[in-house]
Computed example of a mutant assay.
Amino acid sequence: MNHKKSGQIGPRFLVYLTGLLVMSLGIVLLIIADLGATPWDVLHVGLYYQLGLTIGSWSIIVGIVILTIASLISKEFPKMGAFLNMVLIGVFIDLLLLLPFMQTPSSLAGKIIMFICGIMIYCYGMGIYISAQLGAGPRDSLMIALTSKTGWKVGPVRACMEVVVLLIGWQLGGPVFWGTIIIGLAIGPIAGVALPQCQKVTDAFLLRMSKKNVIQAVQEKDRGVS
């Protein structure tokens, strides 16, 4: 069910913002767990180790480069959702990393629990923000541009992107560990479950908000008549 209506920009943006925040929390938990991060975050952390700034800053900078490449390939200007995704995730990552209780657990069991929570939160955050239907992020924009240009399927294109990014991040000293492999294997199946669940909840939320707006409009009309 598609609820992309002009009167629902506010509710959809709230869902979008919530999804980006939740996904950023998942990213931070995976980084702090110190058992291996996502390929893109391996790159961001590696750049942070080598050149300074912050992890969130590198997420934004890399996002700008990716959007530029995607625009050149597709010959289309990026949608606003891609810019929001890029900037907000970078800001959220840095803010969450500043929280004093965001510390790497001392025990392996604690790290594993944080790691598992990070994967689940990351996937459901992705599902929430995608369900708002306000546009793909920089990485997804590049993936779409490459699939359109090459005619390849999404799977091989995304896999090639992830491998190249992972190798560069690894060479820069990013956190590659056995958890990185698990992330690569687990995110697809978990996201496959999370996305339709999140879409169902978001559709129900948007439908409820739409009905609420209609009721309010009718009540205001009745008051005006009386």
Rank of each mutant, 00 (worst) to 15 (best):
N2C: 10
K4D: 13
K5R: 14
S6F: 15
I9C: 13
G10K: 12
F13R: 08
V15N: 00
T18R: 15
T18G: 12
V22W: 08
M23W: 01
S24K: 01
S24P: 01
L29G: 04
I31D: 09
I32T: 12
A33D: 10
P39V: 07
V42T: 08
H44P: 15
H44E: 10
V45D: 13
Y49K: 07
L51N: 03
L51M: 05
T54L: 07
G56A: 04
I61R: 01
I61C: 02
G63H: 04
G63A: 01
E76W: 07
F83Q: 06
F83R: 05
F83L: 13
V87L: 14
V91H: 01
F92L: 08
L96T: 11
L97A: 06
L98C: 08
L98V: 09
L99S: 09
L99F: 09
M102N: 10
S106L: 15
F115G: 02
G118W: 00
I119S: 04
I119V: 15
M120P: 02
I121M: 03
C123K: 03
Y124W: 15
Y129W: 08
I130T: 13
Q133G: 10
L134R: 12
A136C: 06
D140N: 15
L142F: 03
I144S: 04
G155E: 05
V157E: 00
V164P: 05
Q171N: 02
Q171G: 08
V176P: 09
G179R: 01
G179S: 01
I183N: 03
I183C: 02
A194I: 07
Q197A: 09
T202W: 05
F205H: 10
M209A: 12
V214F: 13
Q216N: 13
V218H: 13
E220L: 12
K221N: 10
D222E: 15
R223Y: 09
V225L: 15
